[in-house]
């Protein structure tokens, strides 16, 4: 499935006083099977954009379109939220089964498929645990499994690792790139942490400060599978420096180089 974001912007109304222009007009596309990371400073409208793509918020202008074969009732998108939003009253497996229930998958298949996804994210043996019994990294994995289980056309992730400690975050980055390489899903990944964006993505879209508009789209030509050691390669470091510069406002017109 190909996703096209056309002229999308968002201004929030305030009961008193002027509107907040959270997001300027942005245009971009996510190709089938592509991993796109969206980086930009806090408050530049990243979450706003993700909610618009997810169909959870109406844009002020523009629209989001999906192209490609019908998904047979599967959702176009599924979201891994920054605050996870796991259902506290459901076990880990119950959380993963949720979307399968809504899809009308037969009871026995739900169980099997939920377990398969939990195995893929490394949560075997924790099916019966409740979210409050899991560590941060494990909750993260559960949330990813829940979103992947409905087999969406596009996986949306909003700073999913920002609450994790550095070591767990690194592990989860590796885990996510492994899952991405195994499933070949289209992904829109939001972060304000540039090394993570470069490590994970095929393409990094850099937004300006609020109201966010696209400053630059940078194609990341690093080999897959992505492994930890690419983080010391000169090419990786060059990407980092370039994107750091773009975020700080050095160079790079709105012209997309290599987008």
């Amino acid at each position: 499935m190909r996703t096209v974001v056309e002229g999308v912007s968002k201004a929030y109304d305030h009961p008193k006083g002027p509107q907040t222009q959270a997001l300027g007009r942005v245009d971009f596309a996510i190709e089938e099977g592509e991993f796109v990371a969206l980086v930009g400073p806090s408050g530049c409208g990243k979450s706003t954009l993700l909610n618009i793509v997810a169909g959870l918020l109406a844009p002020s202008t523009g629209r989001v379109r999906f192209h490609g074969a019908s998904l047979n009732g599967r959702p176009r998108t599924a979201v891994v939220f920054q605050d996870l939003a796991l259902f506290p009253w459901r076990s880990v497996e119950g959380n993963v089964r949720y979307g399968l229930e809504e899809l009308g998958v037969a009871r026995r298949d739900r169980r099997r498929r939920a377990r398969e996804w939990l195995a893929l994210v490394g949560l075997e043996g924790f099916e019966a645990h409740y979210p409050h019994q899991l560590s941060g990294g494990m909750k993260q994995r559960a949330a990813i499994a829940r979103a992947l289980a409905v087999d969406p056309g596009l996986l949306l992730m909003d700073e999913p690792f920002s609450a994790l400690d550095a070591q767990t975050r690194m592990d989860m980055q590796l885990e996510l790139s492994r899952i991405y390489e195994a499933t070949a899903k289209s992904v829109l990944y939001i972060t304000h942490y540039i090394p993570e964006a470069v490590f994970l993505a095929d393409r990094v879209i850099v937004l300006t400060g609020r109201p966010g508009v696209i400053r630059e789209k940078v194609r990341v030509d690093l080999p897959r599978p992505r492994e930890e050691r690419i983080k010391v390669e000169p090419r990786y470091v060059e990407y980092l420096e370039r994107i750091w510069g773009l975020v700080r406002g050095v160079g790079g017109a709105a012209e997309g180089t290599g987008s």
Binding site: G55, A78, V79, F81, L86, F87, Y98, V150
Partner: peptide, 14 residues
């Protein structure tokens, strides 16, 4: 009810 949980359910097809 946490509106985020409602959003999560909607995004999962509810």
């Amino acid at each position: 009810v946490d509106p985020l949980l409602v959003k999560a359910a909607l995004s999962l097809g509810s």
